[in-house]
Design a protein around this nucleic acid. Structure first.
Lengths: 144, 144
DNA sequence: CTCAACTGTATACCCCAGATATATAACACG
DNA sequence: CGTGTTATATATCTGGGGTATACAGTTGAG
């Protein structure tokens, strides 16, 4: 398998996983929500614009998403002390709980698929998860 | 990392990969198209209903998708000799080419993210891709 | 043979995620 | 201080994908 085949295969399969989970749990929450909350959890509070870039949605998209999430109290907006135009967005306790609950749902829905997998396979999945996580973080904007 | 964490992490990261690719290539083709074409390639011709299940979309969704893909000649519909209501859908040459082209695009967009990854990491990714592919195929409907 | 129940695909209709274009407000600097 | 720039917000639109339902073809009972 060459690298591009690996990449395509991962993207397609993971995409299926998402569909399988969404369908079997009946969870209709958009993926963008979990992406965004996950980012906030692993990278800490950040501005709306930064978050939009990290979650790969447009800035208006993130503004709207943030508005919804704030209404549900999954996140909190705190004024940026350096710039009155900007907000710092941080994960709220309720958001952390929601994320954990989703992880459980997801696990319950998908673990059966991985039934009977050997330790070597799990090690590969874990390592892959780790690599992908590290490599898909927002680039820290090298100055042009 | 426990299993559910691995699963969540994979789903979220792969999701990001998809977004990154879509944005950086400007490719707006829905993921369902690539999922579906990939399935046809790896599993061969099948009926619309089967394909809907395999690609985890509703049957009407697949009917619509098939209509589009047929119009673009990425797939071909061939009458099912056993049942005049049904169609067999098979990947057309143009579809195979489109899939290959997409894989190239995807690779070009995403490979830089994996720059400098060691052989061990690539092995893990490859193994993970393989496991995920095998475990996300359509269940073959055990008779009830 | 034929009719009723069933099954595979198609049609009608709706919702909402997410994009682009643009407005608004705050900062920065001559 | 005014002018350009940057951070977020608002307005509007497109289309993917879902549910409900129609319709055509199949099948088995009698």
């Amino acid at each position: 398998m060459d690298r591009r085949t690996v990449i395509r295969s991962l993207v397609v399969s993971a995409n299926k996983l998402g569909r399988i989970a969404a369908l079997s749990t009946g969870n209709t929450t958009p993926a963008a929500v979990w992406r965004t909350l996950s980012i906030l959890r692993s990278e800490g509070p950040m501005r709306i614009g930064e978050l939009a870039a990290a979650s790969r949605v447009s800035q208006p998209g993130m503004t709207r998403l943030i508005a919804q999430l704030a209404q549900e109290e999954l996140i909190a907006r705190i004024a940026d002390s350096d710039d009155a135009r900007a907000w710092q967005v941080r994960l709220a306790a309720k958001g952390e709980a929601a994320l954990a609950a989703w992880q459980e749902q997801l696990g319950a829905a998908l673990e059966p698929l991985f039934d009977g997998l050997g330790a070597e396979d799990w090690r590969a999945l874990e390592r892959a998860a780790d690599v992908l996580d590290r490599r898909t973080r927002a680039p820290k904007e090298a100055a042009a």
